[in-house]
Amino acid sequence: MLKNLKEWVIVFIIIGAIMLIGNWIGYDIMPLDALPGLAVLIGISLAGLVIHRLLPFQLPSIAYIGILGLILTLPNMPGSEQIVAWTAEVSLLAIATPILAYAGVSIGRSWFDFVQLGWRTIVIGMFVLLGTFLGSAVIAEVILRMQGII
């Protein structure tokens, strides 16, 4: 656990530095301005990973991370406004770019398997993604309209 924690911290510092640089180049936010927000996000991530290890429930660690972030920023939660203000300086898109850069490097290994898939798999795959995405959007749309929210 402690060994893991140490490694997580170092890895998060590296990933965080890359995110700060992307946030600066792409979204013109100076790294020093984004640092507190990013530190909070990393703190929440670490706490979620640790809670996941300690609790016996079969929930994915990202569930703990999401719930923790949500609870900390609930209205009337002490310090929530400060957390919201800090984390607003870290663009979501700046977080996403390194994720997909690592993903790109990681999927290289699957490329040869990918090209061996037949054309039918590729076509069906696009419809699986389209059906999943559009299906959710349509149901959400219908209910939001029924409620008069949009």
Binding site: F12, I15, G16, M19, L38, V40, L41, I42, I44, S45, G48, L49, S61, I62, I65, G66, I67, L68, G69, L70, I71, L72, T73, L74, P75, M77, S80, I83, V84, T87, V90, L92, I95, A96, I99
Partner: peptide, 13 residues
């Protein structure tokens, strides 16, 4: 994980 944390802090407010 960092992205999910960002999701979380946007969801609270």
């Amino acid at each position: 994980a960092v992205l999910i944390a960002k999701f979380g802090v946007q969801a609270g407010p």
